[in-house]
Design a protein around this nucleic acid. Structure first.
Lengths: 148, 148
DNA sequence: TCTTGACTTAGAGCGCACTCTAAGTTGTAG
DNA sequence: CTACAACTTAGAGTGCGCTCTAAGTCAAGA
């Protein structure tokens, strides 16, 4: 789950030093968030551009610094994606979230839809798996017969 | 099992007449296969072009006529796709199938990989679903509190 | 004969979700 | 001062899996 840390020399890289500091300040660079979440830095910026992530605070008005709240939201986004929600739907969800408490019912409805979709998807996978398992068993039978 | 018959007027369409004939001859047109399988005619031709389906026999050397064996294979392809196999992998699988019995072990290996992938996918979905279900419940609690 | 509808092909186009590039800025170590 | 790593942006490019278009053939019904 943790990204590959490239070896740039024997000394600690700036990134590693930042990481040590950040265990105190709790604010992560985009690179660190990429490593932590599994998303690429490109994808993190892309998600922000398209409005899935609110504009991240900048240190000195330039470099992004992610808070633990930001990370929490990103990790939730990842779950929504992996469960089958499209980027478009996630944009809607993020927009509703930004609008505040009055949109809670709408968001719950979206989550319910997603839940049902995912449950149906699991059902479908299970059914297809049955046939695939059956095929495997049958072919393995044929193979062991030919062997003897 | 028989696809949806579109109403194009009160007289029987050519397609319907073909369908009646085909219950005798057991050979289906591309349109009928599309209705039966849920794939589009475009996709059926695409699958044939890229080698997922062997070249279908033609009536009078022009129009495709699908046998029940063809349908069986197509329905299996659909299951592979829905279980997460890529077009590329399916091309490999189809190629192995064409090469005959000596490739059986390879095909079984591919199916085992697919099985494991799909099982892992289901696991992942289940875990994400837990969190989504939890969120739904929590938010519904908040909503009913606000109501009272 | 004309129209209609189902089919044919080669190849272009599309939507999605990234993924990468080019050109530039910033900050620290040596 | 220089080098370098890490960051920044706008916008172009990619891979997948279709999906559609244009131009044409063919057969049957009015």
């Amino acid at each position: 789950m943790i990204g590959i840390i490239p070896m740039r020399g024997y000394n600690k890289s700036k990134n590693e030093i930042k990481m040590m500091t950040d265990t105190i300040t709790q604010e992560l660079t985009i690179q660190q968030v990429a490593e932590k979440t599994g998303l690429s830095v490109h994808t993190l910026r892309y998600y922000e551009r398209v409005g899935l992530i609110h504009p991240i605070n900048r240190k000195d008005n330039t470099h992004r610094r992610y808070t633990s709240d930001d990370i929490g939201w990103i990790e939730f986004l990842i779950k929504l994606r992996a469960t089958g929600m499209s980027i478009q739907q996630m944009q809607t969800y993020a927009e509703l979230q930004r609008l505040g408490d009055t949109t809670l019912a709408n968001r719950v409805a979206m989550l319910c839809d997603l839940k049902q979709q995912a449950e149906a998807h699991i059902q479908e996978l299970e059914e297809h798996l049955k046939i695939i398992r059956y095929k495997i068993e049958y072919y393995q039978g044929v193979l062991s017969e030919n062997q003897s």
